[in-house]
Design a protein around this nucleic acid. Sequence first.
RNA 1: GCCGGGAUGGCGGAAUGGCAGACGCAGCGGACUUAAAAUCCGCCGGAGCAAUCCAUGUGGGUUCGACUCCCUCUCCCGGCACCA
Length: 956
Amino acid sequence: MVERYEPPAIEKKWQARWDEDRLYQVRDEEPRPKWYALTMFPYTSGDLHIGHWYNYAPADVHARYKRMRGFNVLHPMGFDAFGLPAENAAINRGVHPFTWTMQNIENMRRQLKSIGAIYDWDREVITCLPDYYKWTQWFFIKLFENGLAYRGLAPVNWCPRCQVVLANEQVESGRCWRCESDVVRRELEQWLFRITKYADELLDFNGIDWPERIKIMQRNWIGKSSGMEISFGLDHPGVAEKEIKVFTTRPDTVFGVTFMVLAPEHPLVSKITAPEKKKEVGAYVARSQRLTDIERLSTEKEKDGVFTGAYCVNRLNDTKVPIWIADYVLQSYGTGAVMAVPAHDERDFAFALKYGIPIIPVIEPPDGIVKSFAFPDTMKEGFEEELKMSGFEYKAAEIGGQFVTLHDEAQVKKYIQLMKAYLKPDNWNDIIGSPWLFFFSGKTGIETIALDSIESEAEILKRCKAIEPNVRNCRTAVEMLNNCEFYRDRLFHAEYGRMIHSGRFTGNRDGVNAVSAYLEEKGWGRRTVSYRIRDWLISRQRYWGAPIPMIYCEKCGIVPVPEKDLPVLLPETAEFRPTGESPLKYNDSFVNTNCPKCGGPARRETDTIDGFMCSCWYFLRYASPQYEKAAFDPAKVKRWLPVDFYTGGAEHAVMHLLYARFFTKAIQDMGLVDFSEPFTRLFNQGIIISGHQKMSKSRGNVVNPDEYVAELGVDTVRAYMMFIAPWEQGGEWDDSGISGISRWLHRVWDLAVENYHSLNNQEDQELIRLTHQTVKKVTEDIEKIRFNTMVAALMEFSNHLSRMKKAGSVSAVAWQSSLKTLLLLLAPTAPHLAEELWHRYGYQYSIHNQPWPQWDEALVTRDEFTLVVQVNGKVRDRLLVPASTTEVQAMQMAAGSTQVQSYLAGREISKRIYVPGKLVNFVLSKPGVQEGHSPSSPHSPSPSQGEGDKGGEVKP
RNA sequence: GCCGGGAUGGCGGAAUGGCAGACGCAGCGGACUUAAAAUCCGCCGGAGCAAUCCAUGUGGGUUCGACUCCCUCUCCCGGCACCA
């Protein structure tokens, strides 16, 4: 018996050898082209679960492949080491965050080493060490000096559980990204980064190869929308401001403004509120401050608000517009004020209905449908017959009367005539949609009033109430119409269309541009853009982060710490209590300092920097991790950056990935680097879930890879990760298939280790073909990141080898050469096994320094192929034919097939389809006669399946 | 609600306009063994004795031909969620 494959021993042996030989040490200066393959470094949470491995193992396979393809590959690893969990461990268990973090790193480094990756550990980066965070602080000062870091009073997202503020990106559906607590608002003075300055640049993804999905998420997050800032006149005694500015994307609806809504936090609120409304408004403002974002922004929550008692003026039609406040308007977007057009905005519509505010339609519905309800007993005898005769679409209402639907202007015109003729005295009728007309039949005839302004709205309502007691409690005309189900779909729409009821613009179809131009000409507005994205809030009221390197001096104000004094070290001792204030605040020896400018007494900033800033530049540090003179050695960054291939989870789409892009653009503008995008190609691998949930310690569903490694070997685990699904897909962790991979690697071992006895060389050509075919398939699959099919191809290849070995049907030379190729193809996936077998064959150490095998396209193609023969698109025969077969020959052979002939008998071929190298399809003309089929195929081959099974029985 | 992605055997998946189910797991049968494990060989979507038919979430369409392209609907996953 030959030696058995024993992975743990082999793996340990080769890892030690590689380590000793510094096989994976990366040299900066090499003639080979560079390849920077980066994978997102882990947060130091304690240990790596199988989900982490799913990030790292396939990334390493790809990097190893690139290495064999002749690239000088930098594939570094490090630790994202600042963050809340470390401090929470300190609070809960009394371990110092530093100790906790470094212990975790020890363990994680051990696990990472067991992967057998090509990480060059000399380049390890740990963000919580002073030699790293010194430069994080240095970058902060650079941003400050360039006007990109500023201190501001802002309503912030406060997580009551973590006792810390969060950036907008770190709030997920109103909850803290880390602990899922509901976030509340607080007004605090904080440090922010001016990411909004780069909003437009961040929208430009030219030159980078990123998944469409991530680009869309970033675009949505940035949320650029073009519109207008429109000024409404304000004339309030004692108030200096003479206008209220609103932001709108729909200037074409400006004639439909019937109220104005300010955010509760809007600075004008306290100034303009009428004395008798002060109490109510104050209470509303107080309440909205108290609510969490979840409560306040919940779409389930009914829109509510309060009238301030004040008015402004719509300059376009000189209408007085009541000013309300409501918390569905956000102070932080646009101007914090909106012009409400209830006829064409869903929220405004709901709000207006709730508070009885008039609704004036100003845009025609694009479907052109107009409705009218002929109320019971309002029409004279014979009206219905007239409707019928005129061909109108109508339906009898349950309560009597008719629902009439009109489809064009001619119908409307005709209907109006008809209706006027039949309307009984002292009644009214209306047509809704466009035009919007009310017809009142009085003593003197019929009077028509259009619902085109606040005044006419009031007049219409007054008259209706006079006629119909049932509508007396309606506050607006639309509220009255809204009682009728039939009208509902006409009362509100948000589409673009022809303007109506809009003075000089009535009839205009390009309202947005027309109104914009007019407002600009008048000086009442300007075209502008708004962004959803807000500046990045980076202050954290916590200990375990890089201290913000700023000093407050009473005389000199805010002064950055001079570079020579960096890093501002975290004091070793601090009291860790969840107070909501930085533990540094009460550390006198940290806080008290001297002003670098005037030397006088001063205080240090006690907040620390958001950990996401550390990961904004770690990819630069890897280029020269021990460099002491600066954050990075410019020559090395020039050599290695940008990252060629960045892999990691999609959960960072609008956090890390957006921040890192911003940061890179910012330092490019400072002249520190000469590229604008850090990651040329991004690939998001899928997530491994467990029990239908993301793996996390807190959920208690983590799967530890260590046991699999100990039992089956790391090569098996690596290959299994590659095999389970396409990498971008991920999925539920299920180890039931891992035995298949283990068996396969054992088979490969036996294949290579056991002696081969050649009996003949019958299959040499076939083996050569299969070898080249496999090289091609494996290479292309790795390039396309289709690792699962790559492993499948390797399995198929080794299955063929097994068969040939058993048969002894290839020469010893062909066998050796193919096996050598198999090992090379296997090297990235199963590096230890490949190295061991390579060594046993006596080939030169190391297999990982060998070039990737090439394939010869001429040898890949077979000299014969299976020609599929179809009749009416259904496969009826398969013929093995020479590769040189011509179309004519193929047709002849296909037609000659006995299988096929039974389908052709008595039928005419109307079309012959030929796909070279693949198939022939005979299309038959429609069956004329039922007989004429051979008894063996009684079914009609015609595609018409009407008769189904019962028609198929033909007794012989 | 809006924006993405997805649905294929018992399971993971393969096939991106041309042989549906590669490769693997599980299962079944056999060989070896005193026996078991391991290993090896065979079978393995459904119906049918068979010829053959049915089958890629639903319903329609385009095409000689559709898992693949287009439209409708259902369900699942991810993101955003009053952004005016």
